[in-house]
C-alpha cells in the first residue's frame, strides 16, 4: 500500500453564510429563543420591537431536540440568540456552527442562583482507576421565580446592547414584568403555606423542579436524572417506590414534555392517584393551561395545591 499526501493548494475557499441582518430596515430586533419559556420572557421584554423565533416550541423537550435547517436559517438572521445554558440546550453549539451566525449568544442564566447538582455525576472504572464525571449544575433555573427575574434582566441588557435606541423600552418592559414576577412569588409562598407540611412531598417524571423545591418548600422525587435524555432503569423505579413510601409522598404528577406512562406506573405501584400535569421545561400551546410563564407557574401551583389539599 502506498500512501501519499498531495500538496495542499494555496487557495483555500471557505464558504460562510452572510447573516441576513435586517433590523435596521425593519425597525425590530431579530431574536431567537431556544425554548418557549425564554421566548415568553423575550416577548415580554421586547414587545413589538422584536421579531421572535422560538426553536423548541410548546410542549417541546429541549433535552432531546433535533434542530432543523430552518432553525439554522433563523440563527443566521438573528441579532440576538437567547439560551438558558447550563448544558440545557445540547443541540445549540452544533446549530450555531452550522448557521454561521454572528449574533450575540446570550446565556440568560448568568448570575442566577444556580444549584450545584450533587447527583449530577457518576463514576467510571478503568482497570484499577476510578474516574468521576460531573454534570455540575441543574439547568432548570427558571423554576425559581427569583431566577426568572435575573433571566429577564439579562434579556433586557442583551437587547439594549444591540439596539440602544430601544433600550428605554426594554428596560421599562422588564421592570413591569419583574414587578409581576414579584407578585407571583408572593402568591406561591401564600399557597404553599396553606399546604400541610406533612403533605409536601410529590413525584414527577424528571428532576425539573429542584429550584421550586429549594425556594418554596415542596419536595419532588423522580426516577430519572436531570435530563429526559436518560431513561429510568427498573432499579431507579424500584428505588423511587421505596423512597415514596419512606417519605410518605402525597401525589404523582405527569409532565407536559414527558411520556406519562412511567409516572402512571409509579403511581399505580405506590398506590397514589395521578394529580395532573405539571409544566416543567416548556409552555403549553395558546389553548392550553400554561401559554405564558406566569400562567405556567400558576397552573403548576394550583395543580399541586389541589392534589395536596387535605381530603
Amino acid at each position: 500500500m502506498i500512501y501519499r499526501w498531495l500538496k495542499h493548494a494555496s487557495i483555500c475557499t471557505v464558504i460562510t453564510l452572510a447573516p441576513q441582518i435586517a433590523w435596521a430596515q425593519q425597525a425590530s430586533l431579530n431574536v431567537v429563543a431556544t425554548f418557549s419559556i425564554l421566548g415568553d420572557f423575550a416577548q415580554e421584554v421586547g414587545g413589538d420591537r422584536i421579531a421572535l423565533t422560538t426553536l423548541v416550541g410548546a410542549d417541546g423537550d429541549a433535552h432531546v431536540y433535533e434542530p432543523r435547517p430552518a432553525d439554522a436559517v433563523a440563527l443566521a438572521r438573528a441579532d440576538v440568540v437567547l439560551q438558558n445554558g447550563l448544558l440545557f440546550e445540547g443541540f445549540l453549539t452544533r446549530l450555531v456552527q452550522a448557521s454561521g451566525t454572528s449574533a450575540e449568544i446570550v446565556e440568560v442564566s448568568q448570575g442566577a442562583d444556580i444549584l450545584d447538582d450533587p447527583q449530577g455525576g457518576h463514576y467510571h472504572y478503568y482497570g484499577d482507576r476510578t474516574v468521576f464525571h460531573a454534570a455540575p449544575y441543574d439547568p432548570h433555573a427558571w423554576q425559581s421565580v427569583a431566577n426568572a427575574k435575573v433571566y429577564v434582566e439579562n434579556i433586557a441588557q442583551a437587547f439594549c446592547a444591540v439596539d440602544a435606541q430601544g433600550c428605554s423600552t426594554y428596560t421599562a418592559n422588564a421592570q413591569d414584568y419583574i414587578d409581576e414576577l414579584a407578585a407571583l412569588e408572593d402568591e406561591i409562598r401564600a399557597q404553599i403555606a396553606a399546604i400541610p407540611e406533612d403533605r409536601r412531598v410529590v413525584v414527577v417524571a424528571h428532576d425539573a423542579f429542584r429550584y421550586f423545591q429549594r425556594d418554596y418548600g415542596i419536595t419532588f422525587l423522580s426516577p430519572q436524572g436531570v435530563s429526559t435524555d436518560s431513561e429510568a432503569s427498573a432499579a431507579d423505579v424500584a428505588s423511587l417506590i421505596r423512597e415514596i413510601r419512606a417519605q410518605n409522598a402525597s401525589a404523582v404528577f405527569a409532565e407536559n414534555i414527558s411520556d406519562s406512562r412511567l409516572v402512571e406506573q409509579i403511581a399505580h405501584e405506590a398506590g397514589l392517584e395521578l394529580g395532573g400535569t405539571l409544566y416543567s421545561d416548556a409552555l403549553s400551546g395558546p389553548d392550553g393551561p400554561a401559554p405564558t410563564y406566569l400562567e405556567m407557574i400558576r397552573h403548576n401551583l394550583s395543580t399541586i395545591s389541589a392534589a395536596l389539599a387535605v381530603d
Partner: peptide, 17 residues
C-alpha cells in the same frame, strides 16, 4: 479523579456538546 465542582458559573459553554 475527582472533577472540580467549584466551576465558576461563568464558564465557557462553547465546547462541542
Amino acid at each position: 479523579h475527582d472533577h472540580d465542582h467549584d466551576h465558576d458559573h461563568d464558564h465557557d459553554h462553547d465546547h462541542d456538546h
